[in-house]
Design a protein around this nucleic acid. Sequence first.
DNA 1: TTAGGGTTAG
Length: 610
Amino acid sequence: MIKTSRKLLATSPTNIIPLIKNLSPWAQKPNTQTSLHTFPKGPSILATNLIVSYCTKGLLKEAHQLFDEIPERDVVAWTAMISGYTSSGHCSQSWDMFGMMMGSDDVSPNSFTVSSVLKACKEMECYYCGVMVHGLAIKYGVDGSIYVDNALMDMYVTCGDTMDDACVVFKGIRVKNVVSWTTMIAGYTHRGDGFRGLHVFRDMLQEEVELNSFSWSISIRACASIGSKFYGEQIHSAVVKHGFETNVPIGNSLVDMYCRCNSLSEAFNFFCEMVEKNLITWNTMIAGFGRSGPHSSLKFFCQMGSENIIPNCFTFTSVAAACADLAALSCGKQVHGAIVHRGLERNVPLANALIDMYAKCGNIGDSRTIFNEMVVRNLITWTSMMNGYGSHGYGREAIGLFNEMLDSGIKPDQIVLMGLLSACSHSGLVEEGLKYFNSLCIDTHVALNQEIYGCVVDLLGRAGKVSEAYELIEKMPFEPDEFVWSALLGACKAHKVLYLGRLAADKILDLKPNRADTFLVLSNIYAAEGKWGDFAKVRKLMRGVWSKKEAGRSWIEVKNQVYSFVVGDNMYAADMHLVYEELELLVLHMKDAVYVPDTDSLLHDFEDGT
DNA sequence: TTAGGGTTAG
């Protein structure tokens, strides 16, 4: 039941009570500085106004000093300080102030105080603190305030393990307002349940609540989260009808929705039509187009620069990811330079993106340097570094890092376990991988899913244990999906296990009938078995889907220039000879590494004019 | 004199 935030390690449930009893040491120090202010008797409205003003400008020390000098602090002055700390992101100080206030005999919290401190609980993701404040809200009779109830819901949405507590509060509100509804929609949506979010939105419409810009943007986000262009377009029409089309956050949500629904032309058209754009609009385009292809992402980044929009951490994270996808090292280094130049290198998600970028550009040493220099790391940091090690064939380093991560107190999730298993798989560490699969998935309470099983099938299959991989699939507690069968098919292809390969290919085609690559492997299996009738049938089926298959594009970076091409391209560039020289060098490296090309995947006998 | 929910980064 108790959920305590990592952000609040110093405020465990055992030491919260002393805080409430006014034991915050630094705040209790007697004020030894010379006072600059004189105060009339009674509550000082002027001083409180000044505190608010200081806090708004980020001058928290000055605000606190002034607060210390007020001889008779009323609830408004206390609340102004609590709120000031929360709004500035100093939530533990806000919590400390609340504790001191509760410890003073002459003041009680009101609805303003409770809603302000609940916001701090939310930001700290401290469920225990929030529950305690909920109790105090009931004790002081402020739980009927719509502000308090909405703040309680918001806290439970963020800090609770489920939406249950938020739902209880929501149902208990007799007269819900637009904030109550919006908080519920946002809660479901941010937890990945966009469908329920849209259900609440529908209920809100039925209750004839007057929608504002917040409600529109979160409902669009709900559509985006489930990839529903159908509902997204309906809400877009309603947005226009209600006259909210020029609202920038709503416009940004629409751009994001179209991008996430793979409707890039609609996203671009709407982006062009937007009367007003902000940095988030550009970031949404760069990130949204980046999901489909890194080139357009970089193109928007350049266009943004030419329009004198200053990039931020979000921008650079997407741009670094685009460089990673292109494996464009020199471009990535320039981006890294720009990040350092702007002093953004301490941003954790951005540093994570750089770790990933260097790893994907083949520079695992630089990934590790960034990892080592990070003061704060999160689960994604460790995952990125482990994935980097895995893709470079450093399985043992990935295992060592995983153990280090556990020792540092970070709990693994499914994605990091997949990274670990994949690293073992690519380094041939079958026993080690199986050990983690069998023990850690249980010990760490990470739920096994299709993708984790797919990694273990891959682990066994790559090592030639194809029958064992198939046995594992048969024992799976759920129906295997196309990814699991694809892992088995890959193993069958590599180790020439024809009968299981045919089975895997059939299963994949049952689930995804238009997989041209699966048709190709299946036809090659039939050819290897001498079943020419089946071979011909599959090749005939394949013709239908192959023409729709997007050509595999390759790219190569030579002297700061990225060249992109597909098979049969006629490339014309002044320094084209440099590309061919680089490719010849690559072929030599491959020969040195005794690389044997996999020609099974080539269409030797399909070139019949179709 | 003190309080609210929304859009971008694996």
